[in-house]
């Protein structure tokens, strides 16, 4: 990564954590639905970036959210998992040769972007809520939260991408 990319990603990390803990955690739409917009960091992390670094940074990201939310390590676990499986999801959504084609996420088609983001988000949310509830007799609650929060997060991420892609 060049210096510029490092700076942008560091800034994005801090801003997303603050956005999540100060604003998004308190939306409580219909009582319990919150979007988890901080995973935008993992979505936007350079596609050709170091995979080990991404896994480590995702852990730090999730851990910061956990500290603010008193949730143990649920966000850290979910973030680390999607950071680890991201290469396969990228392959699935953008085709096998995404690494060589130097794809920019802003320039991909809407459908590709949507499939990439929704797989990441739903995977993240199902891990998150399973660990948070930690009780399989509440499986309906887990699925319900995953679905509703997932839709909310996907919408948020898609609109953030559209909002910030104008400049590029």
């Amino acid at each position: 990564m060049q210096n510029n990319a490092i700076l942008i990603n560091a800034l994005r990390f801090v801003l997303l954590v603050l956005l999540q803990v100060l604003l998004l955690n308190h939306i409580n739409f219909l009582g319990y639905i919150n979007p988890y917009g901080y995973i935008l960091f993992i979505v936007l992390f350079p596609l050709d970036g170091n995979k080990g670094l991404l896994i480590f940074l995702s852990f730090l990201l999730g851990f910061s959210i956990d500290i603010f939310g008193d949730s143990g390590g649920v966000h850290a676990a979910a973030s680390v998992l999607i950071a680890y499986v991201r290469p396969w999801i990228l392959k699935f959504s953008f085709g096998i040769s995404y690494e060589h084609n130097n794809i920019k996420i802003y320039k991909t088609s809407m459908a590709q972007r949507f499939s990439y983001i929704s797989i990441l988000v739903l995977l993240h949310h199902i891990i998150l809520f399973s660990l948070e509830v930690f009780n399989f007799s509440h499986i309906l609650l887990i699925l319900k939260s995953t679905l509703f929060s997932g839709i909310f997060t996907i919408l948020l991420l898609m609109s953030l991408l559209i909002l910030f892609s104008r400049k590029n």
């Binding site: 999730g62 390590g73 850290a76 680390v80 930690f134």
Partner: peptide, 22 residues
């Protein structure tokens, strides 16, 4: 397998922290 090992260690740590809070 360094990425997998890194992932496994960090995931384990997170789950451990989660269980701690229970």
């Amino acid at each position: 397998n360094k990425n997998f090992l890194l992932f496994a260690v960090l995931f384990f740590v997170s789950v451990y922290l989660t269980i701690q809070t229970h």
